[in-house]
Design a protein around this nucleic acid. Structure first.
Lengths: 263, 263
DNA sequence: CGGTTTTTTGATGGACGTCAACCCAAGTGG
DNA sequence: CCACTTGGGTTGACGTCCATCAAAAAACCG
């Protein structure tokens, strides 16, 4: 059952190979609850006690925070095979709510039990810290994106990221589960496969700190430039490479030559 | 020596009490290197290998990322008694650079060694996960702030946060170290003490995703409203409570009644 | 005291939010 | 089968917050 978990981990880091048989046994023994939620269901709210940590088995959900003025900020989306809000693993309460936007199946692992397991295996412990580290890096990326990039770049980047993540989920599960837009990879015959991202524009807006109206405008612009097509079944990316360019991923933040001051 | 570390941890969470004598010994045995940096020194850059994790003993530094267009985004500032970029603790390379803006003394603990210690003590391990969790929550706060609040709110919030953190540092070290603006708490005689925040406006701008010019304008507005005074020695907060109101901290994101879907 | 970094201020324009419609697909119930 | 509803998408007009450009003033430093 917790093969799921291993798959998830494997997909994110290369460390799984370093786990011993004992480590695998520790993971396999973890018995999660399997919970089913409908589209739009609230899994937990801000301030709820955080007693479990969650793995998405199928469907899609997102975590978010509400503001005084009634608007909300979406922090991140979670696709099948991804672990939800790892950074809150040890927090006492959830600092953000979690809601599904497609009906989802969630595996819930008891937090205390898992922490016990971690403390029994340095390798496992390290693995999870790595995952948290990764998650934080992603969060930082989002911060930089919102603070320093214009709407075009943010939207382009978002589309690419979501396409990549949902198609990873597709690969992991070989199409055995509900995905937004039932992604499939590019057909070999030269024809572009349907690069679909089926996420309501409100969600995009709330994730990127934009208004729905403006997100729509940017999408229209992309449409006019032939970069994508919007259909009832979501957004179809027609020209990923140009979108990547628009996103400003030309050359990854140029890193000056490594020269650490630490001995 | 690693009393420093304990103080830092104690300041952030209530868990220190739960550590056993053995745990304390583990911490005390850690021998960090003590490194000195001048004002404006680069401690490490994006992409440098992350072999240590760092505790600020005195001075102030900040971590940041550079963008293609030459601008930079400051992720967070670190005051004495704070642990730097915990989320990168287990990452292979730093995802952001670290620079001092006041000459600083940094304690550098060997990462591998510390991870070894953690894995030997569940309590320690848990403590650190909590810290990481906290850091991530702070990062999320910043994200929401930038995505959803206007310049006035962001600046007000920034000032309050930095004042609080630097004065905490002051309390921890009882004034024994260099602080931005040599904060001291309110004098008892009814007179407001010098609530000082001495941070260059460029840094504020780069943290909040604003231009220096606009940060300055907001500060002028606050000045005209009698909320603060800018002097050679930094920004003096004259009316913290009104600033808090401006920051939109009226009633902390209203949390709906806890009702967790998880059993 | 000259050179350099910070702060300050004005003028101008663009990016994006807000308001207010209208359209379209999918249900829903009679 | 058709009125009605509902939720999302689409579009235009208009205003504003904030970036940009430019330049002076002030503070800092050797």
């Amino acid at each position: 059952m917790t093969r799921e978990l291993l798959k998830a981990l494997a997909g994110n880091t290369g460390y799984v190979a370093e786990l011993s048989g004992e480590d695998h046994r520790l993971l396999d023994n973890a018995k999660p609850q399997r919970l089913t939620f409908e589209k739009g269901a609230v899994i937990f709210r801000e301030g709820d006690p955080a007693n479990h940590f969650l793995l998405v088995e199928s469907g899609v959900c997102f975590n978010h925070r509400h503001l005084e003025d009634g608007s909300r900020q979406v922090i991140d989306l979670y696709f099948p095979g991804e672990v939800v809000a790892l950074g809150e693993l040890s927090g006492v309460v959830h600092s953000s709510g979690l809601t599904t936007f497609l009906s989802a199946i969630i595996l819930a692992y008891d937090k205390a039990e898992m922490q016990d397991r971690f403390s029994r295996s340095p390798a496992l412990s390290r693995l999870f810290m790595d995952l948290i580290s990764q998650e934080q890096a992603a969060l930082t990326d989002r911060l930089v994106g919102i603070a320093r990039h214009c709407a075009r770049q943010r939207v382009a980047r978002f589309l690419i990221e979501m396409y990549a993540r949902s198609s990873r989920a597709f690969r992991l599960y070989s199409g055995s589960c509900a995905l937004p837009g039932k992604i499939s990879p590019a057909a070999p015959g030269g024809r572009q496969g349907p690069y679909l991202v089926d996420i309501p524009q409100v969600l995009i807006a709330d994730t990127l700190g934009l208004s729905v109206v403006h997100v729509n405008r940017v999408l229209r612009q992309f449409r006019e430039e032939g970069l994508l097509r919007t259909q009832s079944q979501g957004i179809e990316l027609l020209n990923v490479s140009v979108l990547e360019e628009v996103a400003g991923w030309a050359g990854e933040p140029l890193k000056p030559p490594p020269s650490c001051a630490l001995p």
